[in-house]
Design a protein around this nucleic acid. Structure first.
Lengths: 352, 352
DNA sequence: CACTTCACGCGAACCGGTTCGACGATCGGC
DNA sequence: GCCGATCGTCGAACCGGTTCGCGTGAAGTG
């Protein structure tokens, strides 16, 4: 059932059907109704490929995935969901592109084969060749995250420096003097992931400002690594009384490690960090954290991209978000029994 | 840079370039190299829309989302990731379709506008009009989940009945006599979600078989609901000593409720269920559960779909999986102190 | 009544690929 | 030396839309 078929049955030409549908030229009320009736009857819908070929727009945006293997974190899920929904509200579809191991192939396909009108990139690195390439060829894109030199490009990001610093100040205000920082995996830090870098930066500077004793750690994106990381922390400095984490996937393991070491949260040990609220609320006690507004970020990214697609000459825009720390139940004043392990080892037992 | 440009620079016709690329007709080694050189030089990639229009295949598969609003569970994330990767390995792209509130519009677009060659559907209902429609029009699709009458259609699913029953038997073998069942939200149960129905079924039958006293609950897909649900459970029957859950998003809340009620897991209360391993390992103590092999399921779904696309006349195939229960740390024999609350209320305090 | 004006609708060209039928050149066989 | 098969290439048609220029009939104007 193509447009020619509709035209034939309605007794008009193909172009008239096209104009009746697009409204780009006036069509008399009579013929419009005649055409509409045939369309309704046959349930006709124009072929997307043909339309894309003719007018050069696919009405699809690409969502470029991190090269993080098959390990997706919760935040990414939230991005995907919110981007998809926001795109749908603009009548755009979303094409997923795992810029994974063979990043080039899949990524190049999106652009070279013109499958998408624009792209949204996740998991940005400070020096991001994907973005460099896109801006070099002038391809419309919006980054979720910002590079070292974001001037003149489109993005929506979190002020990781400020957020990590806020966590430090929160702990320092509570009297903690020896704190640890649990970052994303070392491999990602080395790759230049912006959240890992800026977060570490903010943590380190704020800690220096407040004269705290700190140690920083990288930690795999899974509970087992979190558990192991926590054991290292307490081994390296048993007097540590608090930690800041950017690693939501490790959170469960960090808590488990604390329980096993007999440190009660928040009585003996405070935990905070930068984590999406749905994960902060999953652990017990709930995590006091700067909540990553993933859904809002996804929607903003789509808004920006659509604006850029509709008005190609608009100067670059961006949104830098700094959500406040949500006080929940995982932090408390330090100092009642700063270094001694808790007296009651009961709750920590985990025998099978 | 289109195929005509390549042809001109290589001094051949457009059709020759096409044949050189597709290999569907022999091309002399000389001209092939000449063409290849030009292509490499210009970085030419054929336009996807034009190709799709010409040969009727988009090389894209649609991944149809649940109508669950903007609330995505962890399992869905795993599906999305594994489907995307598996599809990439077959050179297919993945188009996301939120068959959400206005399910029709987005869903119909995929099919009617021929944006995709085939579709993978998630969150299947026992009576699923989307699937009925697809099979009615003969559109190639594979379901992740199975309807009430899956004969003759393509799917990969979990034997929820058997899994829930296995959980019951596991608890019964440990001596538990009064257990609760925590299902997905009531709204989904009423909508006919197959996991909710078959799981409930398997639970009920197995419990009857073993002569257990049971109560069943529906619970929202979030920690707060889980917490509330657990309070209801203990209020309705304080002698309950174990629960089975299908609701991974509520898991954190269930644990929190138990801690707050002074029930130590697994000493005073056993918890098990059907949950993806990454979530089972996030809670403390780690959940003894039938691990949902989400990644494997995603890959299998793609395998089936690609087979169906390549061989349109193959009879329907499917995979029914029954993963074993992974013994972790959340279940223990009942009976040492079956009904009395734990003596030590310490670990349950959650003051801010 | 002749002339412009306008509203509508038509045909043809185009987007960038694929595919089919045909044609010229080369080759081997008798 | 002529004929038929084979190989490599070309031109044209087609996929299903969109868009431009033009023609036609009716309405408006002096």
């Amino acid at each position: 059932m193509n447009i020619g078929e509709i035209a034939k049955r309605a007794g008009v030409s193909r172009s008239t059907v096209s104009y009746a549908l697009s409204g780009k030229r006036p069509v008399s009320e009579d013929t419009r109704q005649k055409i509409q009736r045939v369309i309704d009857e046959l349930g006709y819908q124009p072929n997307a490929s043909a339309r894309a070929l003719a007018n050069g727009r696919t009405n699809t945006i690409g969502l470029v995935f991190p090269p993080a293997g098959n390990h997706y974190t919760g935040m990414q899920l939230d991005f995907i969901g919110s981007v998809t929904e926001a795109a749908a509200s603009y009548d755009y579809d979303v094409l997923l592109s795992p810029s994974g191991a063979d990043s080039d192939r899949s990524f190049q396909r999106l652009l070279g084969e013109r499958r998408v009108d624009g792209a949204i990139l996740m998991e940005i690195r400070l020096a991001d060749d994907r973005l460099d390439h896109l801006t070099a060829v002038g391809f419309p894109s919006v980054a979720i995250g910002r590079t070292a030199h974001p001037e003149g490009s489109w993005w929506v990001g979190l002020d990781h420096t400020a957020l990590a610093a806020a966590c430090v100040h929160h702990l320092a205000d509570l009297g903690h003097r020896r704190i640890a920082f649990v970052n994303r995996p070392e491999q990602l830090l080395r790759a230049g992931y912006e959240s890992a870098h800026r977060g570490l930066d903010g943590f380190t500077k704020a800690a220096a400002e407040r004269g705290l004793t700190v140690r920083t750690y990288c930690c795999g994106d899974d509970p087992a690594s979190g558990h192991a990381c926590l054991e290292r922390i307490l081994h390296d400095d048993p007097a540590t009384t608090a930690l800041v984490t950017l690693n939501e996937a490790a959170l469960g393991g960090l808590y488990r490690g604390l329980a096993q070491a007999g440190r009660h949260v928040p009585r003996d040990f405070s935990v905070t960090g930068v984590v999406a609220s749905r994960w902060a609320e999953t652990v017990t006690p709930q995590l006091t954290a700067a909540d990553v507004p993933a859904e809002q970020m996804g929607r903003l990214a789509v808004d920006l991209l659509v604006e850029r697609l509709d008005h190609p000459d608009t100067p670059a825009r961006h949104h830098l978000l700094t959500p406040p720390i949500s006080l929940r139940a995982s932090t408390a004043p330090a100092g009642t029994t700063p270094t001694a392990p808790a007296a009651d080892p009961g709750p920590a037992s985990t025998h099978p």
